[in-house]
Nucleic acid binder design. Structure first.
Lengths: 193, 193
DNA sequence: TTTTTAACATGATGTAGATCATAAATTAGT
DNA sequence: ACTAATTTATGATCTACATCATGTTAAAAA
């Protein structure tokens, strides 16, 4: 989706400083959020305060549609990872977009399919595989978007929050994977090979 | 989507006897499958042979689109839970459907959103919550489609395969939940109240 | 450069749930 | 109604990972 188009339509940009919350679980969805700049994480938090990263959204991407489309309260928090600029598109405008912009409609379908693929993959991991296997799976998944020789810009804590593991387990796990030669690390950094 | 329309278009119906496999992980997707009758389960199987139920699809529903749309090999098995009749719609016809039938396009978007909602919910559970909490969550989710007074037509093994738990854990867990009054059971059957 | 803060590291111990074993109760098939 | 096959049930033990504690290294901030 072309963000500029939305701005041209007169939709206003809103700024969210790092760590500010865009929406919370339980809120009734009213908008779909398009990211002009910045980065957003979508997280659920358990009763005991454990965070799970449901997804990370970057410049040019949008989030919050599923809850709006099926008209159910949000399950997750969305929080700015960096200072971000976001356009909130209301329900009517969003439905217009789907109806009148076939390209957007197709893009949405592909986007939802991609997220579904990721979640299916992670569900299988969390349901059936043990720590090291899980770890290797997200690491490889994340390495897809990394150039050869570059390193993963993700902390062990973030890996933990994406896999449902604990930091200590991730630290020990990456060590084991590196020893087994399943990943490459340099000074702790995980490198795409 | 109206299945009859697909039949009228000359697409042929194929029969799958109970327990037969429609597709397997690793296969390149070529069709989207519309269920005329019967029931299909989508499962992933770990290296150690543990099954995880990714979803169950019934008469009138379709499955297999995400992999086709993003052009990635299947992650899961799809297996007939009962004798089933299915129409396989090829890629071109499926894209036609999306382009030319705006109702279908919207239905697809809603369907994908619903599945995403379910998977986000389960991911949070598997990542962060303990056995009994997980159990209560799918039980309540499944009870949505059940009339008051009716019981859940799902075995403990199936609950286990949806939550990543073991049968014994599910058996002990449902007992605890019933004792705490969080669910109602009659002779082991879980009743919607 | 020094100080502060965040990230990584490692050992010791505890525990939820897996695993193993065995049996009772339902349900399905004949 | 009888037998076979599932499903539910329950106890005993085992284990992967969480939890707790404490330290080191690396990266920001001052």
């Amino acid at each position: 989706m072309n963000i500029q188009k939305l701005i041209d339509k007169g939709l206003k940009l809103k700024s969210y400083p790092k760590d500010s919350v865009i929406y919370e679980p339980g809120m009734q969805p009213r908008y779909v959020y398009f990211i002009k700049s910045g980065e957003i994480r979508m997280v659920t938090v358990s009763d005991e305060g454990k965070e799970f990263i449901q997804g990370v959204f970057k410049t040019g991407q949008y989030f919050g549609e599923p809850a709006l489309l099926i008209n159910r309260p949000y399950l997750a928090f969305t929080i700015a990872n960096k200072d971000s600029q976001i356009i909130a598109v209301n329900k009517e405008d969003f439905f217009e977009l789907i109806k009148n912009e076939p390209d957007f409609s197709m893009d949405l379908i592909r986007t939802l399919s991609n997220r579904l693929f990721y979640k299916s993959m992670m569900l299988e991991e969390l349901a059936s595989e043990k720590a090291d296997h899980r770890l290797l799976t997200i690491i490889n998944y994340l390495l897809n978007d990394v150039a050869v020789g570059e390193n993963l810009k993700v902390t062990r804590q973030e890996l933990a929050d994406m896999t449902g593991l604990r930091v200590e387990t991730v630290i020990r796990g990456t060590k084991t994977l590196a020893e087994k030669g399943l990943i490459r690390t340099i000074k702790g950094k995980i490198i795409k090979v």
